[in-house]
Design a protein around this nucleic acid. Structure first.
Lengths: 245, 245
DNA sequence: TTGCAGATTTAACTTATGATAACGTAGAGA
DNA sequence: TCTCTACGTTATCATAAGTTAAATCTGCAA
């Protein structure tokens, strides 16, 4: 992928920057996060970081690459719930809910930093403010999930896709992985379809519709937004649900 | 509705019982929750408890009745995100996210107990364990949201409806508002449709399909599950995502 | 270069769901 | 009793999206 996010690339620095994008952190908070011991691991594309049914003893922080959470139904259909990008901690909830009811999968090659639950718990116990920031982060994850519900329930395919493109642009921009209305979107159309509740054929049709409308191009995994306001209108996109400061 | 939930009907007692259904609470925790000052208010059916765009200064606890969170799109379509029943605190998140991006609406006549944010914050600051239980509760709310995503994305209308009926049965049973495979479902078919991402006509068709399959009856707001295992199979329902102890 | 595998695109056809409108029913209140 | 209203039901037609299959295209490795 790419090394954005400013100078200090260490896992704690990334986590601090991420949490500070949605909450206020004091120097004491930053210091406490800075002490967290992380173990860094790289996963090849399309491999599982956490399996459905696992009971992890650690949380992970995406450093580089993308991941998604998904579940497979009995008939083999898949639903992708959410995408995670650098700075995100996709499984903070495993601190509280011990069995993962969905898997976490690396999309392209993805580097992840793990912190043991016990270290996270110690941090949370000793630093209420950081606990609140983490809690807040999980709540924002939930608002994104609700936005997904509205998309699936009440938007048509083209609007859903436009909405996802808008959301990812805004999120990637906060970690300096998008600018100038373009970003790397390492998804196949089949994965896009699984996220949007579509068949891959219809995902393809919808994408072409967006192209035909002159809103985006997507070629070689690079998404270019040609008409932001048109795209946002098509999506009825209002970024306030992301609760960025 | 009905007065279930055992002997002590006070708001703190209800909250304690609810949190204890998904987390361990010590006597000290229970004592601390018991001290929370609540203000009780009753809302007529189809009135707004919290408006979209509000910045509430209090959290609410449903004592009696049902409520739902919803948002209305530009074209007038509505999406209901979640239903809340006695024992639920639908807007704990307002402690952390100050503007509600959706409304909270009472369905039938609904009684609600309000706690001021400052009192909740004091409780959370002084009692980490209760904070963790509340956090955990918001995470379970999020797992329900994800379950909704899977329903909307990958299940057909009949399966979606079956899944909702299963979930509400299990949830209502934990607060003694359902037993013997039946419960009060105070929703119109139009509301059911808004929750399931369907038109009301198709919600009606799907309901009739469930009846024809011999799985449920719904008459005069009473839902009777005639064939639990058939319904659960149709829904591919697995209650583990509710994380009940 | 060639061949291969995965990804995208296109086409033809089917199906689930939406939209609209008419009609039925039951309860509330005059 | 009558009327009004909110809901539920039914029918018809329109359309978004699914399914299947085959034709390209792309990148990659031999």
């Amino acid at each position: 992928m790419s090394d954005a996010l400013g100078s200090d690339q260490s896992p704690p620095a990334l986590l601090i920057r991420k949490l500070a994008s949605t909450a206020q952190l004091s120097d004491r908070d930053r210091g406490a996060i800075g002490m967290l011991p992380f173990a860094v691991l790289t996963f090849p594309g399309r491999t599982s970081i956490v399996h459905e049914g696992d009971a992890p003893k650690q949380c992970c922080l995406i450093l580089d690459g993308w991941a998604y959470r998904c579940r497979t139904l009995a008939n083999g259909q898949r639903q992708i719930f959410a995408f995670y990008v650098p700075g995100d901690m996709p499984d903070i909830e495993s601190l509280h809910l011990h069995v993962m009811d969905q898997g976490l999968v690396a999309i392209a090659q993805t580097t992840v930093a793990f912190v043991a639950h016990k270290d996270m718990r110690a941090l949370i116990q000793s630093n209420t403010n950081v606990a609140m920031a983490l809690w807040r982060d999980t709540l924002i994850d939930a608002t994104r999930c609700r936005e997904r519900v509205i998309s699936l329930g009440r938007r048509q395919a083209v609007g859903r896709m436009a909405h996802l493109f808008c959301e990812m642009y805004v999120r990637l921009r906060t970690v300096a992985l998008a600018d100038d209305l373009r970003y790397l979107l390492p998804l196949t159309q089949a994965e896009l379809a699984d996220a949007l509740g579509l068949s891959s054929v219809h995902a393809n049709r919808s994408l072409q519709e967006l192209r035909k409308m002159g809103l985006v191009t997507l070629h070689r995994r690079e998404l270019i937004i040609q008409d932001w306001s048109g795209l946002a209108t098509t999506a009825e996109f209002d970024p306030s649900y992301l609760h960025l400061i």
